[in-house]
Amino acid sequence: MKKATESFDFDKTCTLAHLEVPEDQKEAMKKSIDDVLGYVETLNKLPINHLAPSSHAAENELYLREDKPVKHHGLLMDENAPDWQEGAFWVPQLKA
């Protein structure tokens, strides 16, 4: 495993996550994440390499839905939308 504390690229991660941490809080935030990444290295000591990964708690059968349309009303789209125009959600330009 790469040493997390050395490889964790804070700015790149912020860009991916679409978050911006104020300059004066960056160090503390980065350190708290470094601490956790350091802590989770304890997993390296476990005898788990041979195990299959679990993405779910239980392995039930997946429920499949029939293809029957249901019409929804009262979705409050306009009420909840920050900017509702012509029956659609307005967003600012995609590129500067």
Partner: peptide
């Protein structure tokens, strides 16, 4: 996305999300 004020993303002032 329907881009407003232009044919494409370029030069558009904003977009409507459908």
């Amino acid at each position: 996305l329907v881009h407003q004020g232009a044919e494409a993303i370029e030069g558009s002032s904003g977009s409507l999300v459908d």
